[in-house]
Amino acid sequence: MKTLEELKKIRDEARKNINVRNNNPNDIKVLIGMATCGIAAGARQVMKEFINQVDKKNIRNVTITQTDCAGSCEYEPRVEIIFPGNEKATYVNITPEKVSRIIDEHIINGNIVKEYTIGWNN
């Protein structure tokens, strides 16, 4: 260890791995429907894609977790995104291919991807 900067680099890298333990109420929450219906419809792949993308894009203020069945199983895989203090946005029939756009437009830039949300087609 030669400089304080070197230490800070290790620190920032290591924080990525323990961020999830902070239980930070200001994190953006990504909830993925992971009941039997969700898993059957492919929610596991959607979750994996979220984890990969968030990691790749180096986004720190996101907590990815599961949620229960909401009763409308035909809309699974379903993803809810909650910005702290805001209403949740519910995305339905999500596939791994749609994840990247949700992250770029909604999580990073704050614009809900309307055509993926529930009720868009009706």
Partner: peptide, 8 residues
Amino acid sequence: MYRSNILV
């Protein structure tokens, strides 16, 4: 990245 940590 891990979405969940279990501390034992």
